[in-house]
Amino acid sequence: MKDSTATTGDLDPLIHVPTRLKIIATLAALPDGDTLSFTRLQDLIGLTPGNLIIHLRKLEEADYISSSKARNGNASITTVAITGHGRAALGTYTRALRELLGGL
């Protein structure tokens, strides 16, 4: 039975990092298809821009999030959104976490 053999190894290593867990959980709180500006996400997570970019890049490489840049006058606005794949990965991670904690 999976419940009795669940280990931390079953947890997606890409999500099982405090900062990335916060990022993906925050983006998942938005309705499907909504995007969030980089600056608002930074405010919510409380990271420096450099740190946030590193984590976002990792999530984007795995296709868990998508990002896009739009020009607004002279400024450029970066927005990020969770993808369907990312939402599914968070669901799988949450289930794995429940199984693991249920077995502890």
Binding site: T8, P18, A25, L100, L101, L104
Partner: peptide, 18 residues
């Protein structure tokens, strides 16, 4: 990263974001 901490962080972040 302790799974219990992860579960608490996930719950807290989701609640705050909502």
């Amino acid at each position: 990263f302790d799974p219990r901490e992860a579960a608490a962080l996930l719950e807290q972040t989701t609640r705050q974001a909502r």
